[in-house]
Design a protein around this nucleic acid. Sequence first.
DNA 1: ATCAAAATGATTGACGTTCCTCATTTTTGC
DNA 2: GCAAAAATGAGGAACGTCAATCATTTTGAT
Lengths: 339, 339
Amino acid sequence: MTRPTIHDVAKVAGLSLATVDRVLNKRGGVANKSIQKVADAIAQTGYVRDIAAANLSRGREYRFAFVLPDSATSFMGLLRDALMAESNRLSAQKIRIDILTTQAFDTASLLTTLRTLTPATTDGIAMIAPETPEVQTEIARLAADGISVVSLVSDLPRTDRHAYVGPDNVAAGRTAATFMGKFIRADAGRVLVIAGSLAARDHMERVMGFRAVMNSRFPALDLLPAAQGFDDAATVRALVRDALSDGPLAGIYAVGAGNRGVLDALANQADRPVVIAHELTVVSRSALQSDDFDLVIDQNPTAEVRTAISIMQDLSDAQSVTPTQGAIPLNIFIRENIT
Amino acid sequence: MTRPTIHDVAKVAGLSLATVDRVLNKRGGVANKSIQKVADAIAQTGYVRDIAAANLSRGREYRFAFVLPDSATSFMGLLRDALMAESNRLSAQKIRIDILTTQAFDTASLLTTLRTLTPATTDGIAMIAPETPEVQTEIARLAADGISVVSLVSDLPRTDRHAYVGPDNVAAGRTAATFMGKFIRADAGRVLVIAGSLAARDHMERVMGFRAVMNSRFPALDLLPAAQGFDDAATVRALVRDALSDGPLAGIYAVGAGNRGVLDALANQADRPVVIAHELTVVSRSALQSDDFDLVIDQNPTAEVRTAISIMQDLSDAQSVTPTQGAIPLNIFIRENIT
DNA sequence: ATCAAAATGATTGACGTTCCTCATTTTTGC
DNA sequence: GCAAAAATGAGGAACGTCAATCATTTTGAT
């Protein structure tokens, strides 16, 4: 009736506790047939390792670092908040989190930070970064040193990173396009797309997905070339005003940050375009509520943080990690379902 | 550098381990000033109880029951699957789950099941049930016996249940209505709403939310009186065919199960209505993919199961539970973001 | 058959907490 | 100031696992 322990496994396997332990913790020096016996005994008894006891005994601590750009965007703020909020729960699980801040859009600063990380102080890192060659080599170094590397929000597929935690950004763009096409009631019209930076992989992917669906399913709409707002409200405002000066807009897809700029540019417009933005922040939430935005596609920062940590933990325990584990769902918000 | 333990707390407080333990576990027989000393010492050292060690020592097991209707709907199947999938993770945490099945739409069967539950075998239950007076009194009995009671999917606000885990169903209806109104391109048209049963609180709430938004924001659309499909595909099919015989439909909101019926009734229709359904199941997923449904509002069964369990755990540990803890987000799926 | 190497056994202390018991000290009421 | 009650101290076993050490047995090569 009670849960089987290693003692039971040892008994069933007809081996000593020591040998079972050697197998379980891969200490080596065990005959193959004994390994098999243990495997059979585990299957037979239904033994599951008591993680609480194991961790207690190990006294192990996980030390993870999050490397985030020092961007003023609220999304980064939310990520940081989520990280803080988790910290209590985490300390109870002996997980220590360092938040390392780098200057946004500055690869040199990022590299300096990454170079400080060694296996002596860090078991794993989660990072938001662009995919430059220098970053690539530094990630290779980290991975070679045995540090688990997880890319966050924006993937780095051409590096040695072990996993990606974030949304499918192409799907996000496609989703945005579908709603855009269905929400626009006119038969024709111009649609403006504003990315933060097209050098950022996540933004680029969203733009690609958006364009693909717009072209194939809503060819009557006129998709303007993607502009770059550098996550800055003033720049974004200027871009929207500029586009408006050429005539009315049927839709705006705000891929990156700087949503306040969209709001400002559209203030007092009679027949505002359909607006679809990313990330549920203070600004976008209130814009939904006031009916200034139509829809927001969000990636839940808390989910992102939790997933990243649990994946880093799995990696540190040398457990296998499947790519789908890091997938963060796209949450779609309109005025009626804001949480 | 290392985490403080009760030993450290005892040292700082100038008390023995035994006394600190008495305070921590409320065993009584401790002078007030000592309690204060311990509190101060905890604050000073930043002590956090090591739950792993505590549970290990206690050898405590949580025994929870899920009471689910024996409905053939895929959503119940998904819930059950989620429960099974969690079972490994759970057994490692010494959480034991019983799944108790009751006959759908049969209060007597439900009551028989509930009456078998005693504190001797069960620490908490999560249930999907209608809010009848008998159920009400039985829940009162369970709560009085010290069993934690959580309502799942459909709330039971007028009972002694300790928490509700599930989506905001009124918001779900409002959300459905918003998309319905925006997706329908015609200026007028008839909209059919099919609930499973209007006696089920969740369905009722969705219908209410839907109606409210349709009336206020899309008054040009003609909302037909809500029909009951009893979660049965054949019944649903008949209802849709019936409505179609009176003329074309602009939209269908399928509140409950039986989506295959909608699909069947619409097969080979030239200009199909906008279809919005609930729960991402095999049927609705493929209907999205084949462009037969426009949008699906989902409540993630895995999230629901996990939340319910963690809330029952908190309740068992006599921790306070805030109502928002049980909120399950509404996930919105279209063809482009199916996971 | 011999010897080294490989495999296994036996045992122990530790991790941080809970839950006991029994002894000792302090406080309280009169 | 005394007895009774209350509070505290001291200590130990247990939970299931890990991580050692040292002793013993089995295996394989020659």
